[in-house]
């Protein structure tokens, strides 16, 4: 039994690096895009820009990740825009994450008292300085716990990339099943690996919540 588990784990190990790269790649896109969209959506006076961002967010938040990956990988692939499966997964999950985090950062900004901004412009800060030095650091702090939850969700969602043949953990598991027939054990092991990968993230969220506390 232990032998088998060891054998399976070693076989699945090959997928971990892809799982982690997809998670990190998508996370980076999501944070940068989400912060950009969140800031612009919160502060621009331009109605059309606000509307465009709203459309983007609503679309990506109300369509399943699997559909988006299929559109990018099979759909765009069929019209000549062929992406690798890992690239497609990073891009698709990152674009979805951008929409999710746009809302998260927006909520962070709108939680701030208007006096925070007023005090900044009153000492002569420009709007850009006010956002960068005063508002964004506070909004990001407020956004950290939901950001952590998003990261855990993202880690799990990378498993969806197996459906477009990205060689991550689930993909390895599915391949392994066809050659060994130890299906139950294989999927339990795969689940266990995800769980182990997510534990440090849980820890991180807890310590963030403790550190910055509620109501600061």
């Amino acid at each position: 039994m232990l032998d088998k588990i060891q054998h399976i784990l070693i076989a699945l190990l090959g997928g971990i690096s892809v799982t982690i790269s997809v998670t990190l790649g998508a996370l980076i896109i999501a944070v940068l895009l989400g912060l950009l969209l969140g800031v612009v959506r919160s502060f621009t006076k331009w109605k059309l820009l606000r509307f465009t961002i709203d459309v983007y967010v609503e679309l990506f938040r109300n369509i399943p990740a699997l559909a988006i990956l299929f559109i990018i990988y099979f759909g765009l692939g069929s019209v000549g825009l062929r992406l690798g499966s890992v690239t497609a997964a990073i891009l698709g999950l990152g674009l979805i994450g951008g929409a999710v985090l746009c809302d998260v950062f927006r909520a962070g900004f709108s939680a701030l008292h208007s006096g925070q901004r007023e005090a900044a412009i009153a000492i002569g800060m420009t709007p850009y300085q006010t956002i960068r030095l005063i508002l964004a650091p506070q909004a990001i702090r407020i956004a950290l716990p939901p950001l952590g939850n998003y990261a855990i969700q993202l880690l799990k969602d990378t498993s969806i990339a197996s459906a477009i043949a990205a060689p991550e953990i689930m993909f390895f598991a599915r391949t392994l099943v066809t050659s060994t027939f130890e299906t139950t054990l294989i999927y339990i092991c795969a689940a266990g690996i995800y769980l182990l990968l997510s534990l440090p993230l849980f820890r991180a969220i807890q310590s963030i919540e403790k550190r910055f506390g509620v109501g600061r």
Binding site: H113, G115, I121, I123, G124, P127, P137, Q138
Partner: peptide, 25 residues
Amino acid sequence: MSDAELAPQRAQMGMVFQLFYLWPH
């Protein structure tokens, strides 16, 4: 003026608010 253009003028006046509005971070 826009807020950006106003900045140098506002810098010449110090303002103290009823509710302080210190920056907590």
